[in-house]
Computed example of a mutant assay.
Amino acid sequence: MPAPLASPDVAAVLAQLSELADPRIRAVNENHGDDHSVHLGKLRELAKELKAQPELARELWRTGGSDARLLALLVGRPKQYDRDELDAMLRDAGRPKVQDWLVNYLVKKTRYAEELRTAWLADPDPVVASAGWALTVERVAKNPDGLDLPGLLDVIEADLKGAPERLQWAMNHCLAQIGIEHPGLRDRAIAIGERLEVLKDYPTPPNCTSPYAPVWITEVVRRRQV
């Protein structure tokens, strides 16, 4: 059950979210495991109006609704959360979009990012582990010093094929990122993708890049060389 509302401000914001809700958007999102009903662009517009409000962010998160939680992640401040609170939020995030925004808009910007990355990678819960892999993608792209990239490829090669969906997506992203960012490992990353064939047949809209790692790697490298 959602926690009781702690202030009239929360009730007012929830009323705004209710007005912005569109059942057609929710129906589309449910196909991807999500349940938010407000267009993400409108959520960002509302967040811009509200500006940073740490306490409101906490109260919105406690309501449990995905729209409210996504808004909370936009109006919160990374420095307001400690390590244990971020860990608890990740484990309670539930929906993929909420988890994705939590990792990208909060956790990555805190001083706990590396500590949580290593802890989550080793977590037996595949959903939690997927967040660790998402943070690893960030390290691979921006700060790879100290990472055992060949070792990461070993793990991906062994576990990617049989991983649950959310974990598989995160590991596959890491595979592609290693191939894109590190030319010395590119051939191996492509070979792993070709052998495992994960997401090879994933339907990809026109003008979008396939999530199949060999195609993803090749296309991004090609664009950077143009």
Rank of each mutant, 00 (worst) to 15 (best):
L196Q: 08
L152D: 02
A122M: 06
L14H: 04
A141P: 03
L40K: 03
D22W: 06
K108Y: 08
L102R: 06
V28H: 06
P206V: 01
G65V: 07
D22E: 07
G64S: 07
P183K: 06
D145G: 14
I25Q: 14
V107E: 00
D82G: 09
L102D: 06
R139C: 13
E45R: 15
M171S: 10
L56G: 10
G146H: 04
V75H: 01
P78S: 04
R77A: 05
R58C: 08
A88D: 14
G41W: 13
H36T: 09
S130P: 04
D9C: 08
H36P: 08
P150R: 05
P8E: 09
D34I: 07
V107K: 00
E30V: 07
A141C: 12
R24H: 14
A68T: 15
L106H: 04
M89C: 02
D9A: 14
L74E: 06
C174L: 09
A57L: 12
S66A: 11
A47H: 08
R69Q: 14
C174P: 04
L185V: 03
Q80I: 07
R166Y: 08
G193C: 11
D100C: 09
S18D: 13
G64T: 03
K51H: 13
P126N: 10
H39V: 05
P126F: 10
V38H: 09
L60A: 11
P144F: 11
Q177C: 11
A134H: 05
L116D: 02
K42N: 13
A141W: 06
A72T: 02
A170K: 10
A52C: 08
V226L: 14
S18W: 07
V215Y: 01
V98G: 04
I192M: 00
V215D: 03
P23T: 10
G41M: 13
K161F: 01
Q99G: 00
K109L: 06
E181V: 04
S7R: 12
P205T: 01
E45V: 15
I192W: 00
A72Q: 03
L46K: 12
K109F: 06
V28K: 07
A68P: 14
P203M: 01
D22S: 11
K48S: 15
L86P: 00
P54T: 11
K109W: 08
A113W: 13
Q53D: 14
S18Q: 11
L152C: 03
R166M: 10
G65A: 14
E115Q: 15
V13I: 10
